[in-house]
Each structure stands twice: as C-alpha cells, then as structure tokens.
Amino acid sequence: MAWHFDREAGQGLKLISPTLLYVLVMLAAPLLMVITFSFWTQDYLTIDTTPTFANYREAWTTPLYQVLMWRSLKISVIVTGVTVVLAFPIAYYLSFHVKKRKALWLFLITVPFWTSYLLRVFLWKVILGYNGVFNTAFLELGLIQEPLTFILYNLNAVVITLAHAWAPFAILPIFVALEKIDRSLLEAATDLGDSPMRRFFRITLPLAMPGIVAATLIVLIPTVGDFITPRLVGGTDGLMISNMIQIQFGKANNAPLGAALAVSSMVVIGLISAGIFLVGKKLGGRVR
C-alpha cells in the first residue's frame, strides 16, 4: 500500500485538477479580463484597446460615483454591523442555552433564506410601505397617529432588508465559534472569582472573535455587490455603486467604465476586509 505515500501529492493534484481547471477558466480568466477591460475605453460601438487610466480617473473623480461609492461603503458597514450585532445573541443563545434540538433551531434559522430572494425583498417593501403591514398594525393598535414614512425608500429600509437577508450567514459562523469554546475555561474563570460580565469579555468574546470576523466578512463583501435591494426598497438615496455598475453594463453601454467601477469597489472592499481580518486576529483567538 505504498501508493498513498509516494504518489499522494500527484493523486491529490490529479483529483482536484478538473475543479481547478473550471475555476481558472470561468473565474480567474474572466476576472483578469475585467481588469484588462477597465484600462480600455468604449468608443461608441467598438472598444478602443489602447491602455489608459481614463476610466479610473472618471470613476474616482466624478462626484456622482464618489457619492455612490461612499454610500455603498457606509450602507455595507452599517448593514454588517447591525446584522452581526443582532445575530450574536441568537448564536449565543443557541450555543449556551439550547440544550436539545439545536439542529432544529439551526434549520429554522435557514428556512427564510430559501424564500426567493426577490420576493423577500419585495415583501419587505410590503411590510414597510405607507399602507404596509407595519403601519396598519401600529395605527390599529394606536401606537402611532399617522403612517410612518421614514421606513421605506431610504437607507433604513435597505439596512432592515439586508440585515434580514444575511442573518443566517452571520449567525452560523458565530455559532460554530461559540460551540468550540471549551466550557471548562468558563468554569475555571467563575471558580477564580470572575464576574459573569468579566468572564464574557475575557473568555467568550475573544474566543468567538474568529466567528465574528468570518460573519463580518461574509456579510460585508456581498452586500457591496447587491443591486436588487437598493433598487426595490432604497429609493433614490438608497442607490449603491452596484446599481451604477449594472447601469454601465446595461443601458449606458460603457462596459469599460463599469469594469473600472467594479475593480475599484473590489479593491476598496478588499482593503477594508484585510483590515478587519487583521484587527480581529489581534483582538481574538485567545483568552485575555
């Protein structure tokens, strides 16, 4: 049975090669092409392939794009913060207080995620609208005098909708990290006289940090790329950079500029992600 010692590396590479090849052709090559494309220019119907920074100059200096980029970052960061903060107590509850039927809880948390994404966003519009579920219910109960208007077609609606859409993605990584915490550490802290609050900040939170960082990145990165939610519930001041990317590739027919906007937002979000990752690594992973 020598084959799995000598030829192990070769066999492993051979086995993974179809998948790797697929990803190289369908992901790596297209991504490189987008980057190349962003240095070209649209000349009405043809593409001028002289390399230039013009698209990037336009992407970074045009006030409209600056506004959209800022707003995208702001919305994504707020959405991520809200989602992760709301998700943490649930993950904590599941890990520490649910003794039986954990799997059932996890399953229940993922079910809403499998409703058609478009319909979920649309239904939030129904809930938050002027004559929506929220307003009718609260008027009926006498909690408000007239329908609230600040909850649809603006940033709030985008934040609520996205915090809902990404909930399971935030809960699961944090839950996994909490599950891994050695319970005897917590007992030791109590025995040594730590108050519950101190114990939480010295042990639970730092050890949960890898999960929190994973949750943050899993929510943050795709949120920047969402253009459905802003379009359906965001109104005009909820539009994000992805809507502009979509417009450039669609109606505006300026794919190179769209590519430059896409690359720019990826670079920015990549840097922010790297920052979060490093900070998380520094803050967590061990008992303080």
């Binding site: 992901l27 987008v34 990165i221 795709p222 790329g225 992805s242």
Partner: peptide, 13 residues
C-alpha cells in the same frame, strides 16, 4: 465571498 455582480460581470465581459 465574491459579490455575485462581480462574478456575473466578469463572465459577461
């Protein structure tokens, strides 16, 4: 972790 719009746009290009 890649935003779907990036995957879509890259393949489209």
């Amino acid at each position: 972790v890649l935003p779907e719009i990036i995957v879509a746009v890259a393949l489209l290009v």
